[in-house]
Every structure is written in structure tokens, then in C-alpha cells.
Amino acid sequence: MNSIKGRLPLYLKKHLTMKRLFTFTAGILCVLGAMAQSGLKSGAPAPMFTAVDNAGKSIDMGKLLQSHKAVILFFYRGQWCPYCNKHIQQLQDSLQMLTGKGAYVIGVTPETGENINKTIEKTHASFSIIQDKDYRIMKAYDVNYVMADTMVAKYKAWNVDLEKMNGNMDHVLPVPATYVIDQSGKISFVQFDKDYRNRASVRSLLNELN
């Protein structure tokens, strides 16, 4: 970490705290780890799936699209990710506006049910969150990637143990991405960015639902 900081311009050295340096370094590592993924494109058929959410509710994408104008499907890394929590909180804060336009919101994550509960405690999320244990949904939307061993070790040094967070040894994370699926079953909106700090704004989602 010190070697990275040593190569930064002087003005960045002065302004980067250890927390900011973690974010800066982790951002570079995650972008590199996710290079192979490209995500599904706008206009493509959305993969349908069935699952059970954190509240034990059966989720059937096909049926949801029969009773809702759209489904907002987003992928997040875990309760340890401040950018994920901020995005989830923004969605929750605007949930009435989103549902008022006929949308059903679903979050998908590799983290364990226990950690999903921690996410809910931090964000007060009241929409469906699905633990994608076998990465079936992440793979269908082409957002899954395996974190390199060197990156796993760095995260552990920063007190982020993916094996504990996800309950396995796979080290799989999603590229944080957001899709809007319309009633025809097609993807009408995509926000896919390998820089995990960038997320779909609520404004952009509301504009899509107009």
C-alpha cells in the first residue's frame, strides 16, 4: 500500500486518508479483476429466473412482469461495501417513487443471509434481496467475476474476508450493475461500470420508468 501511495502526486498524498487510499487501491484492483465481464446490453432479452428472497417470498420474474410495469434488478457486493450501502439507501429512500411508477425492485448479492440482514440494518431496505448462492443470476446477466488471490489477501488485510461474507471459498463478486426490464421481458436500461464506485442514479431510473 505504501508503494502505491509513494507513486501518487503530491496533492493526492496530502488529501488521501487511509480510508480514501483503501478505496482508491481497491477500485483499481476490482476494475482489473472484472475486465472479462461486459454485462447484457439494452434491448436484449432479460434472463428470467425464480428464487426466494430474504423474507422467504417466492420471486418469479415472469409473473412480476405480468403485474408490474418493470423490474429494477441490481447487483451489489455486500454489506462491507460503503458504495453498495449508499446505493441501496438511495433506492430505499426513493422506493415509493419507483413503485409508484409500477416498478418492482430486486437486489442480488453473493453475501450470506446473515450479511443480507446486516445490509438491511444499515440501509433499512424493504425490497426483495436475493442471495445468489450458485451465481446463477449473476452468470445469466454476465456480471460475475472471480477475485484474484492477491486481491483476496489485500481485502483480508483490510478486514474484508470474502470467505466469511459469502460463506464459501469461491471469491466471486458481481460487477455492480443495474437493469430495468420492461413488460415485454426486454432490458430497457443498463448501468454497467467496472468501477464499482459508479452506480445508477435514482433520477435515471425514474426517467426510464416514465
Results as ranks from 00 to 15, higher is better:
2 N>Q: 15
3 S>Q: 13
7 R>F: 04
9 P>Y: 05
9 P>G: 06
13 K>G: 02
15 H>L: 14
16 L>N: 10
17 T>N: 09
18 M>Q: 15
19 K>E: 15
20 R>L: 11
24 F>H: 13
24 F>C: 03
35 M>N: 09
35 M>Q: 15
36 A>Y: 03
36 A>G: 07
36 A>T: 12
43 G>N: 08
43 G>T: 07
43 G>D: 07
45 P>G: 01
46 A>Y: 09
50 T>M: 10
50 T>I: 07
50 T>G: 12
60 D>P: 08
60 D>R: 06
63 K>R: 13
66 Q>R: 14
66 Q>D: 13
66 Q>E: 15
69 K>N: 13
70 A>G: 08
70 A>I: 09
71 V>F: 10
72 I>K: 10
73 L>V: 11
74 F>E: 07
75 F>N: 07
75 F>M: 06
80 W>T: 11
82 P>V: 10
83 Y>I: 05
85 N>R: 07
86 K>E: 12
87 H>F: 13
88 I>P: 05
88 I>A: 03
90 Q>E: 15
92 Q>A: 05
92 Q>M: 06
93 D>K: 14
95 L>C: 05
96 Q>Y: 05
97 M>G: 00
99 T>G: 04
103 A>Y: 04
103 A>W: 06
105 V>T: 05
108 V>K: 02
108 V>M: 02
110 P>E: 03
111 E>C: 02
111 E>F: 02
111 E>N: 02
112 T>R: 04
115 N>E: 13
119 T>H: 01
120 I>N: 04
120 I>A: 05
122 K>F: 01
126 S>A: 15
126 S>E: 12
127 F>N: 08
128 S>Q: 08
129 I>A: 02
129 I>F: 04
130 I>S: 03
130 I>R: 08
131 Q>D: 00
131 Q>P: 00
133 K>D: 05
133 K>Y: 01
138 M>F: 02
138 M>Y: 02
138 M>H: 04
139 K>W: 00
140 A>Q: 11
144 N>S: 13
148 A>G: 12
150 T>N: 12
151 M>L: 12
152 V>F: 04
153 A>K: 15
156 K>G: 01
156 K>T: 04
157 A>T: 09
158 W>T: 00
161 D>V: 12
162 L>K: 06
162 L>V: 07
164 K>T: 14
165 M>A: 15
168 N>C: 09
168 N>S: 13
170 D>G: 00
170 D>I: 00
173 L>Q: 11
173 L>G: 07
174 P>S: 05
177 A>W: 09
179 Y>G: 10
182 D>H: 05
184 S>F: 01
187 I>K: 12
188 S>V: 14
190 V>R: 12
195 D>K: 12
195 D>Y: 11
197 R>N: 13
201 S>W: 09
205 L>N: 02
206 L>T: 04
207 N>D: 15
208 E>V: 09
